[in-house]
Computed example of a mutant assay.
Amino acid sequence: MLSAASSQLNEVTFLPPKGSYETFTDEGHYAEKVREWGLSTTKEVKKQFLYKEKNLQYTVTVKGYEVYEKNPEINTIVIEFQDGNLCCIHPAYLKEMQASSFGKGSFSDAAESSPSPSNEKEKTEMHPAEDKVPESPKEPSKKKEKPVKLELPEEKVHFTASVKQFSLSWNNFNEENDEVIILENLVIQLENPIEVGLSWCSHSKTLKKFELSPGDILEFDGKIVKKKLPKGKDVEEQFIVADPVLYKINNPSKIKKG
């Protein structure tokens, strides 16, 4: 059984607040916070609480609280012992101490190791303002959906598309950037049309005759292959393509500008 030990405060390992802490503005504020921490459920709000340690118990009062700077909803209570010493404690831990069962069984059997505030685990419970904010449960990570594999026709087919932008692509053969056109909304016009999305093709002399601009609608024949757009080297911002472009149009012909 825990015995009264107000004269044995030298047994307590104090964790005083670091610097200033929040105090109560009035009795109403005190009652609100104490009930928020679950320390009092009666009509008359409790003014004294028990602090239990090493088979001893002490009467303490709540003087204020610390606020965790990154999360104002997380508090550390500041309690005062009868000799004026201050100590920080987690609200839930002080609440546990009010139970008559606290200190029995594993508490009294392991008084030398588990309940001592010098123990690292208990320090965390009593002074969470010095520790990290508890992480909220992580939602199960959603697997990225793999892009649908397109069945590309091998023969020359008819396409519709619009010009998205102009870009530059590195050519390993001549070791310089080539001009290319990025097409969007590319559709292979078959009996069952195939939506491709983005594609690219060389800005050839034939295409340059059309003096294309972003937004222009095109119809043309050509062959499509799976070939990722090689990034240009040292290109200006307006030539950078934000999304990956995985398909290339070869030898566009019978071009019509809408």
Rank of each mutant, 00 (worst) to 15 (best):
P117R: 01
F166T: 04
E176T: 14
E219S: 14
L168C: 06
L50T: 08
N172Y: 11
W170E: 03
S40P: 09
Q8I: 04
E211Q: 12
Q57N: 12
K223H: 01
C87N: 11
T160L: 02
Q98R: 04
L50A: 08
K256D: 13
P16R: 07
N171E: 03
A242K: 15
S204W: 05
D83R: 04
A99T: 08
E176G: 13
K43R: 12
K231L: 14
Q238H: 10
P244G: 02
E191Q: 14
T124E: 12
E237L: 03
A31T: 11
H158A: 12
I194D: 02
L198I: 08
I182E: 01
V62M: 12
D131L: 10
L56Q: 15
S101L: 10
N71T: 13
I224Y: 00
S108Q: 10
G38E: 13
H203L: 14
P230D: 12
S213Y: 05
E154R: 08
E11A: 05
G222A: 01
K146F: 03
C88E: 04
L39I: 03
E191H: 06
K70H: 13
E11I: 09
K138Q: 15
K142L: 11
V45G: 04
Y58P: 07
H158L: 06
W200N: 05
T160K: 07
R35A: 12
V225I: 11
N174V: 15
K257R: 15
N75R: 06
F102Y: 15
Y68W: 14
Q57D: 08
N85I: 00
I188T: 06
F49P: 00
E179S: 15
L2I: 15
L2G: 02
S202M: 11
T41G: 15
V45M: 05
